[in-house]
Computed example of a mutant assay.
Amino acid sequence: MDKVLCIGELLIDFICSDFDVDLRQGVNFIKKAGGAPANVAAAISKLGGEAQFAGKVGADVFGEFLKNTLEESGVDASMLILDPRYKTTLAFVSLQSNGERDFIFNRGADEEFSYEELNKEEMLNAKIIHFGSATALLGGTSKECYIKAMKSAKDNNIFISFDPNYRVDLWKGKEDDFREISKSCLGYSDFVKVSDEEIKLISEEEDLSKAIKIFHELGAKVVAVTLGKDGTLISNGNDIEKVPSIKVTSIDSTGAGDAFVGAVLYKLLSMDNPKNIIDNFEALKDIIAFANTVGAIVCTKLGAIAALPTLDEVINIGSDESSAS
């Protein structure tokens, strides 16, 4: 089966809906499914591709909610483990008017996902494996699982996608650890998606062209640096170009980066060998333009998974853009 397997965390985000308060003052919270790899899987499925998710949640009401959310999005959740020994990971977040974020992270089951629990046969049946975790690299058995799975995918010539998903609140005081583990992952990666902030942090280089060169030297084959409304800087090591995005009125950028990755991987699924995209820069630019559109559409709606577009929506938006120009 031509599918993308997404490995990483799945958790509950409790988002404070009270205006301009910290968590101490907050009273009302909205429960949302969280976890970047799950968002990527849902994006692929919504576009019409086959996506599977592997990870661990608790065997509790939150874990059941997350499993149901994946399945309702069309994602194969057969590799999701509901473990009665641990609670589902929870994050509590409030946004304040000055842009600051109050954040508490109660880590649970996702940290305990081990390589021994990963279905290797299913994993190696995937055409593409996406590693896009904000938490798996923090430590615990999940970190070992992540690295071993990456190595196994590399050894079996499976196309590897990697998004380091840096979160300030999670890595505060441990930036050097994040930098080093991210660098080691680049050596396995065929496609790497980073924000401009992330590539500067990992490479310790402010100039984006030089930072991209460092990523290639570390082993990354294709590097995509997302620049928000300015589009995406894409490089395959020989060519580099900025691919513009479409103009939209953004109301919520949550999940836009994950939708972008999902769109890229959805397009790569249709190729006999996704690795061929590395040397086909014109085709790569077309895929990135498509992914930019998907990410932009997500910014026009509220929520992450709820905002993901269907293929028809993307095609219609693209048609409207062509007519306008």
Rank of each mutant, 00 (worst) to 15 (best):
M1G: 15
D2S: 14
I7W: 01
L11T: 03
D13H: 02
F14G: 01
F14T: 04
F14W: 10
I15A: 03
I15M: 08
D22E: 10
L23W: 01
N28M: 14
F29M: 01
I30P: 12
A33C: 08
G34T: 03
G34N: 02
G35F: 08
G35K: 00
P37N: 00
V40A: 08
V40R: 07
A43T: 08
I44K: 04
I44Y: 05
I44P: 00
S45R: 10
G48L: 02
G49I: 02
Q52Y: 15
F53K: 00
A54T: 05
A59S: 12
V61A: 14
G63L: 06
L70H: 03
A77H: 01
A77I: 08
S78M: 09
M79K: 13
I81C: 03
R85F: 15
R85V: 12
Y86I: 05
A91C: 12
V93Y: 09
V93N: 05
Q96F: 10
S97I: 10
N98H: 08
N98R: 07
D102E: 11
F103D: 00
I104N: 13
F105W: 08
A109I: 07
D110Q: 09
D110L: 09
E111R: 15
E112P: 10
L118F: 06
M123L: 12
F131T: 02
G132A: 06
A134F: 08
L138C: 11
G140E: 01
G140P: 03
G140S: 03
G140N: 00
T141H: 12
T141L: 14
S142A: 15
E144V: 13
C145E: 11
C145A: 11
Y146N: 10
S152T: 12
A153W: 05
K154R: 13
I158L: 12
F159L: 09
N165G: 00
V168Q: 13
D169A: 14
L170K: 01
W171T: 03
K172M: 10
K183L: 06
K183R: 14
G187N: 06
D190L: 10
F191Y: 15
V192L: 06
V192A: 03
S195L: 00
S195H: 05
D196V: 04
E198P: 00
K200H: 11
D207R: 11
L208I: 08
K210T: 12
E217G: 14
E217K: 15
G219S: 10
G219V: 07
G219E: 04
G228D: 04
I234Y: 01
N238Q: 14
D239K: 15
I240D: 00
E241I: 10
V243S: 06
P244H: 09
S245T: 11
K247Q: 13
V248C: 08
V248Y: 05
S253H: 06
V261A: 15
L265P: 03
M271S: 15
M271Q: 12
P274V: 15
N276M: 13
I277S: 04
N280F: 06
F281W: 05
A283F: 13
K285L: 06
I288R: 13
V298Y: 00
V298K: 01
K301A: 04
G303W: 03
A304M: 04
A304I: 02
I305D: 09
A307V: 08
L308W: 05
L308G: 03
P309M: 11
D312A: 13
V314S: 03
N316H: 15
I317S: 12
S323K: 13
